[in-house]
Design a protein around this nucleic acid. Structure first.
Lengths: 139, 139
DNA sequence: CAGTATCCTGCAGGATACTG
DNA sequence: CAGTATCCTGCAGGATACTG
C-alpha cells in the first residue's frame, strides 16, 4: 500500500493548496476522514442503533456542539452515508438514519473499534512496559 | 452502541479538562485516534508493507514532517502496535515494523479503507446528486 | 425544533535550527 | 542517520446569539 505522491508536489505548486493536492492524490481521503474523524465516527456509531432526530443525536453523541453535529451530518449526507428526512410540519421534525451504504461502512468501522477495544488490555500493558522502560532509561 | 456520558460531565468538572473527561469516558478513544488519524493511518499503511527506517518511512508517508512522523511512531510504539529496533552503530540505524497486534489492527483498518475506496463511485454519485439538489433549491 | 451566523481561541502541526 | 527543540500560524471547533 503506497500512499505517496512525489514529495515535490506539496512544495512547488500553485501555492497554498497543499491540502488539496493531498486530497487529490487520494480522493477517498475526504470520505475516510468523515468516517473516522471524532464526530463522524461517533455519529455513525449513534445512528447504527436506528433513526434519530437532531437533538436526540446531540444527546447521544456526547459533547458534540450544534455546529459540529450539523456540519458532520451534512458531510455524511453529502457522501451518501446518512439519509435526512424532513417533515414540513411546524415545529419541524427531521430524522436521520444510515443509508445502506452508510450501514455497510459503519459496520466495518464498528468492527475496527470493537477490535481496538477488545485489545485494550494488550495496549495498556504495552504502554506500561513502554513507560517503565523510559523511566528506567531517563532516571 | 452508546458513546455518551451524561452531558453535564464536560461542563461542571474540575475545569479545563473536558478533553480528558472525554478520553476517560472511552479509554480506547486515544488508541483509536492514533490508528485512524491522518498520520497514524498512513504510517500503519506504510508499515503494512514491511520494515522501514525512519527516513524511508518519511518518504513513503507523503507529506509527513519529521516532527509528526516521530510523534506518530512514538504513539504507535507506546500502544504496542509498532516495534522499534535501534542498532547502536554510527551512524545509527533504526528500523520500524508492525507488531502482531499492529498488523491485526492495520488489517482491519486497511479493510475499512479498501471498502471506502471501493465505494467511492457511489459516494461521488451521492455528492453530485446532493450538490444538484442544493443548487436547484438555492437558485 | 432544527438549525445558521459570527466571533474567538487552543492546539495540531509546519518550518527551521540544532544534536548525538 | 535519526531524531529533538523552538517558534509560529491556520483552522477545527467551542460559545453565543439569532431565525424560520
Amino acid at each position: 500500500m503506497v500512499v505517496s505522491a512525489p514529495p515535490e508536489y506539496g512544495v512547488d505548486m500553485t501555492d497554498d493548496l497543499a491540502y488539496d493536492v493531498f486530497a487529490r492524490a487520494c480522493p477517498s481521503r475526504g470520505t475516510l476522514e468523515h468516517v473516522t474523524g471524532r464526530w463522524g465516527s461517533l455519529t455513525l456509531g449513534a445512528l447504527y442503533d436506528g433513526s434519530f432526530r437532531f437533538n436526540e443525536l446531540r444527546r447521544r453523541v456526547d459533547g458534540v456542539s450544534e455546529k459540529m453535529l450539523s456540519q458532520t451530518l451534512h458531510a455524511l449526507e453529502r457522501d451518501g452515508l446518512v439519509h435526512r428526512e424532513a417533515q414540513p410540519t411546524n415545529p419541524p421534525r427531521v430524522d436521520y438514519r444510515l443509508t445502506p451504504l452508510g450501514r455497510e461502512i459503519a459496520e466495518r468501522l464498528i468492527g475496527l473499534i470493537g477490535l481496538v477495544e477488545g485489545r485494550m488490555p494488550q495496549v495498556e500493558a504495552a504502554r506500561e512496559s513502554y513507560d517503565a522502560r523510559r523511566a528506567a532509561t531517563t532516571v
